[in-house]
Design a protein around this nucleic acid. Structure first.
Lengths: 108, 108
DNA sequence: CTATAATGCAACTTGTCGGTTGCCTATTTG
DNA sequence: CAAATAGGCAACCGACAAGTTGCATTATAG
C-alpha cells in the first residue's frame, strides 16, 4: 500500500471522524457509522470506500448489512512511516552535531 | 493545526517525496527542491505551499532565494495522533478481553 | 550597470472530490 | 407474502486541486 494513499485517506475530517469512531466501537454497520455526520448515507459511503481502498478499514458483508472494522495494521504502517522520517531527520542532526563539536578531525 | 490538514498535505506522492528529501538535506532552496519531480517549478511551488500551510515546512527568504526547512514538530504531531488512535483501539481490545475472561463479574 | 538566476503572481485548463438525488436489490420481520 | 430495513449503483453538479504558461520582480555576478 502506498503511504500517500493512506495519508490521503486520513486527510479529510469526515473520514478521520469515522476512523475515530471505529477505534472506540469494535465494529459498526455502515448505517450506524454514516449517521450524524451531516451528510447523506451515500456521501458517507463514498468516504468509507476511500478508507477501504486505503486498507484502513475492512468491509465484511453480513446478511442484510455490512460490518465495518478498522485494520490497525495500516494505521501502524502510517505511523512507522512518520517515525522513519523523524529517525532520518534525527540522524542528520546528529551527524551535523558531531561535525560541529569536532571542528578539525585531525587531532584531539 | 487540524490533523486532517496535515494528513492531507502528506497525502500526495510529490509532497511526500519533498518531505523525504528534506529529512535528508538539512535545508534546500525552492529551486533545488523542485527539480527532478517531473513537474514545473510552479507546480512544485504549489505543492510546497500546501506543505507550508500545513506547517510541515517553513519558508525562509534569504536574499535572492528561499530556504525550505522541515518542521519536525508537525510531523511529531501527526505521529502522536495515530499513536493515540492505536492506544484507544488497544484499550478497547483490553476491555473486551477482560470482559471475556471474567464471564460474570458476580463472584470468583 | 546589465545579464541572469531565483522566485513571485495571475489566469487558465483539466480532472478529481465531495456531495446529492433517484432508483434498484436483497434480507429481515411480522 | 408484504412491509420495512440496509445497502448498492449510476448520473449529475459545483468546487477545488494539480498542473501549465506567461510575465513581472528582485538580487547577485561580471
Amino acid at each position: 500500500m502506498e503511504a500517500a494513499t493512506v495519508f490521503r485517506a486520513l486527510g479529510d475530517p469526515v473520514r478521520l471522524q469515522m476512523v475515530q469512531r471505529l477505534t472506540g466501537n469494535r465494529s459498526c454497520t455502515i448505517g450506524a457509522l454514516s449517521g450524524g455526520l451531516g451528510i447523506t448515507r451515500q456521501g458517507a459511503r463514498k468516504h468509507l470506500q476511500v478508507l477501504a481502498d486505503a486498507e484502513l478499514v475492512v468491509l465484511e458483508p453480513k446478511g442484510r448489512d455490512v460490518l465495518v472494522h478498522l485494520d490497525p495494521r495500516t494505521l501502524e504502517l502510517a505511523m512507522r512511516f512518520i517515525a522513519d522520517l523523524e529517525r532520518k531527520w534525527e540522524a542528520r542532526l546528529d551527524a551535523l552535531r558531531e561535525f560541529v563539536e569536532e571542528p578539525p578531525p585531525i587531532e584531539g
